[in-house]
Design a protein around this nucleic acid. Sequence first.
DNA 1: CTCGGCTCTGAATCGCTAC
DNA 2: GGTAGCGATTCAGAGCCGA
Lengths: 376, 376
Amino acid sequence: MTTTKDKRAVSARPLPLNQILAGDCIEIMNSLPEGSVDLIFADPPYNLQLKGDLHRPDNSKVDAVDDHWDQFSNFAVYDKFTRDWLAAARRLLKPNGAIWVIGSYHNIFRVGAELQNQGYWIMNDVIWRKSNPMPNFRGKRLTNAHETMIWASKSEDSKYTFNYEALKSLNEGVQMRSDWVIPICNGGERLKDAQGDKAHPTQKPEALLHRVLVGTTNPGDVVLDPFFGTGTTGAVAKMLGRDFIGIEREEAYREVAEKRLSRIRKFDSEAIATIKPKRAEPRVPFGQVIERGMLRPGEELYSIGNRHKAKVRADGSLIGNDVKGSIHQVGAALEGAPSCNGWTYWHYRREGKMIPIDILRQQIRAEMEVDETRPH
Amino acid sequence: MTTTKDKRAVSARPLPLNQILAGDCIEIMNSLPEGSVDLIFADPPYNLQLKGDLHRPDNSKVDAVDDHWDQFSNFAVYDKFTRDWLAAARRLLKPNGAIWVIGSYHNIFRVGAELQNQGYWIMNDVIWRKSNPMPNFRGKRLTNAHETMIWASKSEDSKYTFNYEALKSLNEGVQMRSDWVIPICNGGERLKDAQGDKAHPTQKPEALLHRVLVGTTNPGDVVLDPFFGTGTTGAVAKMLGRDFIGIEREEAYREVAEKRLSRIRKFDSEAIATIKPKRAEPRVPFGQVIERGMLRPGEELYSIGNRHKAKVRADGSLIGNDVKGSIHQVGAALEGAPSCNGWTYWHYRREGKMIPIDILRQQIRAEMEVDETRPH
DNA sequence: CTCGGCTCTGAATCGCTAC
DNA sequence: GGTAGCGATTCAGAGCCGA
């Protein structure tokens, strides 16, 4: 949807394309020509506010994000920083340009509110659901298994770029949703320094940027990343035939990114089309049967052969003959067996008939299947 | 984790429990006794940018010439509303109380920022991932397939309630994540009015509230919902043996909710009880193991992996490799770890087998239970 | 070669209680 | 109220090693 109007808005002064600029992103953005960029992808500091050390149950220490660039003395300081870089970014965008910002609950609400205050127009918030997040080691909170991205255009009137069909195709023919299941960046993709340690604490997976750039830019567009880090945005932009501008303050990150980019080759278009996303697996915990009201807490289940019974509890556990635990554990205990498939072992009664609870799981799975495959 | 301190904070003035109060939620909350509520679940108007009116305590109307200005003025009104109801809610919470707020990208960033500004402390943002969302018919954006909930305690110091084991149990033994897959409310659960139309535009599924209440309240807790609507919060609270207070301005919704609640029955107490954490079990000093002759002074203990050993002393301390102290201290010292659970770390030998000393603690605990139940 | 077991690690606002 | 000490707590995936 990029228009000729946007193209004319480009200043006569040449843009420093496909380079990494060294320095403070606000100053550098303010030095670049107004209205010259199609898309901004920004991964600003999250302002994590970590306190002491954290250890895993095996006593190993978690290598936390304690870098100086993530330290802000209070919300006011962080808010000013956010206000300034978002304003500089907005000035740089073409009238039909758009921005993506990624963050966690520590900062994303402040970023989102400021985006709205400045007149950006939010199209979607998008959830990156991590298939392999770090667990909560102390059992004090829910596993923090996602990050939030906000996708917004420069203004309400912007004719933003949205490649609906491309995303649908990436999603096996089904309309792309606002929650994306993508693994965290590790293995061979994760960049290491000379000592073999991770080169950057928060390197983003290329799969994430792939989806962002395929969905909301066109070949030849200019993509700017003001917090370039190790250059995932630049790498994916280069593969996909987009131009990038990176800004990064830390020399160590710039060096890693330069080296990375030098090895990247642009895909041919066929290769791009064949990349498929990883899909979520339909594991169904028994608790969902309770939450959805398919069985009520207090209801009784009966074993195969009707020799044992147990009562369902609100947390999805069973209690029967003084044994408490999962449907599998209680089944195994009552049978004196080392293991038991609770789904086929337990039955509930409806109109005098005994029905295996696995039927309920199948119903839930069917709903999930319909949802994942039905063309809208 | 609710403490007696919270219980004492309850005012002498009786709370209007298990009722729906009619009127403006801010006024009503301000009329209730301070520090009297364990949990608040709030589903405030998402509003914004939609033409329909929200509370507009009104500003003089400016001719909408400048979009940006107009937008700001709308946000300002919404922000004031948010500030006021969140402040009233915070006053009502016990020191260890907590709040859940649900919203979409239209309002959640403003709500989240204001929560932080007021001193609430965010534990998680939780994604309700809808398994059956409404598709985006025009193909101009991603399918908006989720809503965002924020879970926050009254302050950073709050000892908030988190039933880790119950949620883990609901998820079949795996730690609960911050993304919850739950279908939208439809079918038989969706309340209809006399004409057969949906009674409320945004009725939340009971499954969502089930998980919230099982995870972050205890039986007997007071749960307040300032935007009660058709009363999903009250319905699930009643089923789970929690007390509720509902506030709702619209008479039509109150009527539907009253009728709904009158049909709800509480689950039996045994079903409501959930798996308890080990922390809740009585503490057993290691010295008791010696006193009871389960281990003899001079006997040797062996570490996990058999790399270290230590000798038991008569006072219940260990000595190994010149280190003396508790089972925990010696374990930590020998491993060079910051801490160590001596109960699971140390093993004793019986008939050639290595047995963790935790077995002995479990025996003592079992005896204590018998003691407690026997008439004195 | 495969397979199984062991190790390592990832944007983390990650105690409680008794003295 | 401050502090010392007990003792609870993890999931997925990649890589490596030995059988």
